[in-house]
Design a protein around this nucleic acid. Structure first.
Length: 439
RNA sequence: GUGGACGUAGCUCAGCUGGUAGAGCCCCGGAUUGUGAUUCCGGCCGUCGUGGGUUCGAGCCCCAUCGUCCACCCCA
């Protein structure tokens, strides 16, 4: 045997039991997107490094130290996308979608960031991204938040809280940045090393510090809200009114600044207290200047990204349900003739009841062993087909959970009998269910 | 990138002050003839993360390395 090849740090394999949760989340998200007219878009995972530098900002942590960047065969610098918005907007520009047009889109897929892994933070991680471009009013800001809120609602997620803020225009933000820099420079002695570093690069990020020693100093710092230009303030007030009208609870967090340079005006973040340190499950904001930065015509835009592993973790923590994938019926097939006839019967049942999950025993082993597997599979019913059954043209159906007697069922009635035994809910197709393989 | 904890069978873990490894689960088979989940019996499973070092001897000590987890940082 050769040496076993291990996966890379922070790269995870997703096994079937885990994937059930992801499927549930993705199914719900796709459903909600279709309800609101958001259409799917898929873009490359690999882009020119320059795209991310220009979009996210040269001096952000992501670009400075977290990107997977390397040279391709032609010696050109390429990067595995650390987030989706830049790629999506590049694609929108490349394909002429921003010339006096409006679009609402979403994409689902992996992102890559070379951070030290911990709970809810991995080097390859998955996001669901929603973006709307071509709309400049606060209505679209509200709609995007409603889309995310509806995903929580359908999933049954609680313990998430919405925080919102407005960053204003780049000009008012610059003015505020200088005010902050002046304030913190005056108190530089009280700052920790990280904050001193941020004082030079991006003083707004000091506001995000988790250091309790800095809490008082930060609380007394100038407020972004006081520097907001009138148009941004009006926009923000209108968004709040929309949210109030829709019954979406939120708190205004004047210290919410976000880490990507391209944001302007509205920013928001859904946070949870159930996941430890990585508490942001979905966040985003408006990026009206990005398209121009990427060489397109001025196009207002806004979007959010939802961290799929964080939401899955939250679903599990809250005891919610995943997609059911346990078979409804398990076919026990004893003997060569039965194996062949059984597969054929299973096909007929699948034709008649498309939502039913049927697992056939493919081992050709003894009946006892097959029954053990039938039980282990979690199926509700075992359908037994052996030599006798084939000769008689009638299967035996045995309930494996709860009560009920084993009964004979002519092959011709199999689909109908299974449908009535299993129940219409399951036969019609069920989205989510608790799975108990045992009792 | 910084700090701390950890890394023993497929899984969860035990292994006392160093003397060349155990349990439960899982899996396979059996407890008379075609029926599971309970019970009983039997079987399979390990280069003790990896590489060095100390020692007569290391899973237990030392160093390095890789990985996991938690926090910082960052952010989804």
């Amino acid at each position: 045997m050769s040496e076993i090849i291990e996966p890379l740090r922070g790269m995870n394999d997703m096994l079937p039991d885990e994937a059930r949760w992801w499927n549930r989340l993705e199914t719900v998200a796709r459903h909600v997107f279709s309800q609101y007219g958001y259409r799917e878009m898929r873009v490359p995972l690999l882009e020119r490094t320059q795209l991310f530098k220009r979009a996210i900002g040269e001096y952000t942590d992501i670009v400075e130290k977290e990107m997977f960047t390397f040279e391709d065969r032609d010696g050109q610098s390429v990067t595995l996308r650390p987030e989706a918005t830049a790629s999506l907007m590049r694609a929108a520009i490349s394909n002429g979608m921003v010339h006096n047009q409006r679009h609402r889109v979403f994409t689902i897929g992996p992102m890559f960031r070379g951070e030290r892994p911990q709970k809810g933070r991995y080097r390859q991680f998955y996001q669901i991204d929603a973006e709307a471009f071509g709309y400049d009013g606060p209505d679209v800001d509200a709609e995007l938040i409603l889309v995310s809120a509806r995903i929580w609602k359908l999933l049954g997620i609680s313990r998430v809280r919405l925080e919102i803020n407005s960053l204003g225009t780049p000009e008012s933000r610059a003015e505020y940045r200088e005010a902050l820099r002046a304030y913190f420079t005056a108190h530089e002695a009280a700052l920790d090393a990280d904050s001193r570093r941020r004082l030079v690069g991006n003083p707004l990020r000091i506001l995000d510090s988790k250091n309790p020693d800095l809490a008082a100093l930060i609380a007394a710092a100038p407020l972004l809200t006081d520097y907001l230009d009138p148009a941004s303030r009006e926009h923000f007030d209108a968004l709040k009114a929309r949210l109030d009208a829709a019954g979406i609870g939120y708190t205004v967090n004047p210290r919410l600044v976000r880490g990507l340079d391209y944001y302007s005006r509205t920013v928001f973040e859904w946070v949870t207290d159930a996941l430890g340190s990585q508490n942001a499950v979905c966040s985003g904001g408006r990026y009206d200047g990005l398209v121009t930065q990427l060489g397109g015509e001025h196009t207002p835009a806004i979007g959010w990204a939802l961290g799929m592993e964080r939401v899955v973790l939250l679903m599990q923590e809250l005891g919610l349900e995943a997609c059911a994938d346990l078979p409804h019926a398990y076919f026990v097939l004893a003997g060569p003739a039965a194996a062949s006839r059984g597969l054929q019967l299973a096909e007929e049942v699948r034709d008649a009841l498309p939502a039913l999950r049927i697992e056939t025993d493919l081992t050709g082993g003894g009946i006892k062993a097959q029954f053990k597997r039938a039980d282990k599979s979690g199926a509700q019913l075992a359908v037994v087909i052996g030599e006798d059954e084939v000769a008689r043209g009638s299967a035996q159906i045995k309930p494996l959970r709860g009560g009920g007697e084993q009964q004979a069922c002519p092959f011709a009635d199999l689909a109908g009998r299974l449908a009535s035994l299993i129940g219409s809910a399951a036969v019609d197709g069920d989205g989510a269910a608790r799975q108990d393989r045992g009792r």
